[in-house]
Design a protein around this nucleic acid. Structure first.
Length: 372
DNA sequence: TCTGGGGTCCTAGGACCC
DNA sequence: TCTGGGGTCCTAGGACCC
């Protein structure tokens, strides 16, 4: 989807169309009045989750701190993110695609892979039909890349944004993919891109021609081989239509850095709230988890994680909080805290957990019998 | 006045077991 | 009596993605 959150907001507030618009920051309780304020009015620690193409032209991009964005685009309109609304539109757009092509891999709220292998229609009209149906269902535009695999499709989808449609074959890799910066490959992030640049490798084409041994030296054999494959446009990953979640987490960044001793009560309250939210999400999604962990970020932005694995999966607030406190006892609090998070992993479905728990209760009864 | 919140996957070391 | 070779599970950190 193109600038998805902003697109959804513009359906509600069409008066902000074709001006720079940034989505981000928390909803303010006090400002229920008129929607949208100037970015220059913003104070806080939020980041831009989305910027419209007008705002991007001024240098604002997602992930940028709003204070920094305000310097670049003080007159831009700022709207807080409304995730419930985005989730609704996410469902609508995925359903619209599924009406035409049902083999879909979820890649988050605004992105999917579609397997068109079994479709006999001509590619361009088929892709256009998907775009049309998404627009009909949501009023929003999307960009589609059609290619022999997911890696190339992802790059292709980005070549003609917004409202784009790009069809790529293996023969196009040299001419259309190789000139692009290596960073365009999904999986090469800022760190790997910087390391490649230090090796004199800037483009995907240069990466494709790099020595395997050189890449293995700097990135390890596994990642090195993957880099080389990716640069050649090779990718065998299937479109995965069902996936079980691995972990669920809740975290919050404080409005000001907190001192563990002075702000003890507040922190304890925040921890409780996080555990309540996490428990609620677990129950709603029908999972229990065995490994409970905490995540902290200090004022200097460095972070630590601690985790502990319980003997039985849990989903209730108190069990999560108890485990989180065990983790927190193993953390050094020598700096102020900026963020606190709680995570639960080793998930099992509520149904499976029920069976585990009754089996364990049965074996406990049996042991009781042995000792009595 | 830097830097949200929700995830996945990989690596590496240690404990522990046979 | 100077030290094998598997394997699994767990923890912690880091890179990356939307």
């Amino acid at each position: 989807m193109d600038a998805f959150y902003a697109g959804v907001e513009l359906l509600r507030y069409p008066q902000f169309k074709s001006i720079a618009l940034v989505i981000g920051g928390r909803r303010r309780k006090d400002s229920e009045q008129e929607p949208g304020m100037r970015l220059s009015q913003y104070t806080g620690r939020g980041v831009a989750t989305t910027a419209t193409y007008e705002a991007r032209a001024l240098g604002v991009h997602s992930g940028m701190g709003l204070m920094k964005a305000a310097k670049l685009a003080p007159e831009a309109i700022l709207l807080p993110a409304d995730f419930e609304q985005y989730t609704r539109y996410s469902r609508l757009f995925k359903a619209a695609v599924a009406e035409i092509a049902p083999t879909i891999e979820d890649r988050g709220i605004d992105e999917i892979y579609i397997d068109l292998t079994e479709h006999d229609e001509e590619t361009a009209p088929l892709a256009q039909a998907i775009k049309d149906n998404v627009r009909r269902a949501t009023g929003l535009s999307c960009s589609i890349g059609v290619a022999p695999n997911k890696l190339l499709a992802k790059i292709a989808s980005d070549l003609d944004k917004p409202d784009g449609l790009t069809i790529l074959t293996a023969a196009d890799v040299r001419t259309r993919i190789w000139p692009l910066p290596a960073r365009k490959i999904n999986g090469i992030g800022p760190r790997a891109a910087a390391k490649l640049q230090a090796l004199g490798i800037e483009s995907i084409g240069a990466l494709a021609q790099a020595e395997r041994a050189l890449l293995a030296t700097h990135f390890g054999a596994h990642f090195g081989d993957w880099l080389l494959d990716a640069a050649q446009g090779i990718d065998e990953r299937p479109v995965v239509t069902v996936r079980e979640p691995k972990s669920i987490s809740c975290e919050t960044t404080f409005e000001r850095d907190l001192d563990v001793r002075r702000d003890r009560e507040l922190l304890s309250h925040v921890l409780l709230q996080l555990c309540e939210r996490l428990s609620g999400n677990l129950v709603r999604k029908g999972y229990l988890g065995k490994t409970v962990g905490v995540r902290l970020r200090y004022e200097d932005f460095r972070g630590v994680t601690r985790a502990t694995t319980l003997s039985l999966p849990v989903n209730d607030t108190e069990a999560i909080r108890q485990a989180a406190r065990v983790c927190l006892k193993r953390v050094r609090f020598d700096r102020k805290l900026r963020l606190l998070g709680v995570r639960i992993g080793s998930l099992v479905s509520a149904h499976a957990a029920h069976e585990i728990n009754s089996a364990s209760a049965a074996s406990e009864r049996q042991q009781g019998a042995l000792f009595s």
